[in-house]
Amino acid sequence: MRDPYTVLGVSKTASADDIKKAYRRLAKKLHPDQNRSDPKAQDKFAEINQAYEILGDEKKRPQFDRGEIDAEGKPRGFEGFHPGAGARRGAGQGGGPGGAQYYEYEFGGAGGARPGAGFDPSDLFGDIFGGGRRGGGQAFRRGEDINAVVTVSLPDAVQGGQVRVSLPTGRMLDVKIPAGIDAGQQIRLKGQGGPAPFGGTAGDILLTVQIAPHPLFKLHGRDIRLELPLTLYEAVLGGKVEAPTLTGAVEINVPPYTNSGRTMRLRGKGLPENGGKPAGDLLVVIKIVLPEKADTELENLMRKLQAEKPYKPRNGLL
C-alpha cells in the first residue's frame, strides 16, 4: 500500500476539509462503474478508500503520522515495548529476531478505534453518489431510474417486434415490443439504468411507448380506423370487397346502396389483447370515389337520373 498522502495527492499539512475534497474528486473519477473498460479500476478505487480510511479519521491520521500504524491501518511492531492499557500480546510474542517482542496494538477505548468503530468512508458516498444507508461499512443504494421514449411502428404495436433504442446513457439496446402494446405504456428494462454507488443494484430504464403515424391506419384507443375507397357502382350494387388490415387482406361484404361515411366493424382486428386489455376492432369507413377522368356516358346517366328520379339527401339540414 502506498503512502496515503501520495494516493490522495495531498500534503501532510493538508486540512481535513482538503483531504475530504481530494477523496470526493478521486472517488467520482475512479469509481469502477465509471471506468468499466479499465481492468485495474477496482484496485485503484480500493486504494483511495484505504487511504481515506487513514487520513479521514481524526484518530488514525495522527497514529499514522507518529508511525504507530502503517498505510493499511495495521499496528507496527515495536522493539522493547511492553504491553500496557490499550495493548495486548500477539500470538508470537517474544519470538522475534534478537529476542524482540512483537505486539498487536488494539485500538480501542480512549486510545483509538477498533475496526468498524472508527471512520467509515462509505458515509461520504451519500454526498458523492446521491445518498445511501449507513452502517456496516456499506453505502448500498439503488441506481437512478432513467426515463426515455421509444417510437414503434403501428404494425409492431399490433404484431409485436423488436426495435433498437438509443438510450440517454449513449448505449444501444434491442428491445422486444409485446403485441398489443398501447401508446403511453411503459416498458421497464431492469438493471439498465444508472449505476449504483459502492456496489448497489443498478437502476432501471423506463421506456414510454409512442406509436408512429401510419399512412393508411389511424389508432383510436385500441381500435384502428381505415378509410376504404369504393367505386360508385360498388356502393350502389354492393358485393364483396377486399380490404387491407395490419395482419393481411380480408374480404368484407358491402351492402347495396352503401353511403360514404358508413362504418363497418371488423371484430378483433385492432390492437390484440394485452395485459388484460381486450382486443380492439378495425373500423372500416366507406369513402365513395368517382372516376378520375371525365366520362360522358356516366354524365348522361346522371342527367337522366336527375330528370326522372330526383331525390333530396339534404332534407332537414336547411
Rank of each mutant, 00 (worst) to 15 (best):
G56P: 12
E234W: 13
P255L: 04
E68S: 05
G268E: 05
N274H: 15
I187H: 01
T13P: 02
K312E: 12
D3N: 09
A139P: 07
A294E: 11
G135N: 14
G130R: 06
S15R: 07
L26F: 06
Q34M: 15
L228A: 02
S15H: 03
S153K: 12
G270D: 00
Y5D: 09
T245P: 08
V149C: 08
A46T: 09
Q306P: 00
P229Q: 13
P62E: 03
V10T: 03
R134N: 07
Q42S: 14
Y233S: 12
G161A: 02
A100W: 08
V165Q: 08
E53S: 11
V7Q: 00
L283I: 10
P197I: 05
L8D: 10
D3S: 03
I69F: 05
L237M: 02
K304T: 11
L266G: 00
L266D: 05
K190Y: 12
G80Q: 02
V284Y: 05
D33C: 09
L282A: 04
G191K: 05
R89S: 10
S166L: 03
Q185M: 02
G99Y: 02
P197T: 01
P83V: 11
G135T: 04
V150K: 13
N259G: 10
G95L: 15
G135D: 04
I69W: 06
L290E: 07
T151L: 14
N300F: 14
V250P: 12
R303M: 04
L230D: 08
G126I: 10
P215G: 11
R36P: 03
G92F: 13
E79I: 03
Y103C: 04
T258Q: 06
P168D: 03
L226T: 03
Y102Q: 04
L219W: 07
R141D: 13
E144L: 08
R222Q: 13
E106P: 09
Q138P: 07
T6H: 04
K21Q: 14
G191T: 14
Q185R: 12
R114C: 03
E308V: 08
A183K: 12
K59R: 15
L318M: 11
E242H: 01
A148L: 00
A235C: 02
P278E: 09
Y23F: 15
A139E: 07
E79P: 04
L301V: 10
I48M: 11
R133M: 05
L124E: 15
F45L: 00
E308D: 14
A51C: 11
R267Y: 09
D3R: 09
L228K: 01
K29M: 08
F107E: 15
G193D: 02
G203E: 06
D3Q: 04
E251S: 12
P32I: 10
G9P: 14
L124D: 15
V158Q: 07
A27M: 01
A212C: 10
D120M: 10
A110Q: 14
T231M: 08
G109T: 12
P195A: 00
A51M: 08
G9C: 10
G109N: 02
N300Q: 13
G132R: 02
R265I: 15
I286N: 01
T6E: 15
P39K: 03
D204G: 05
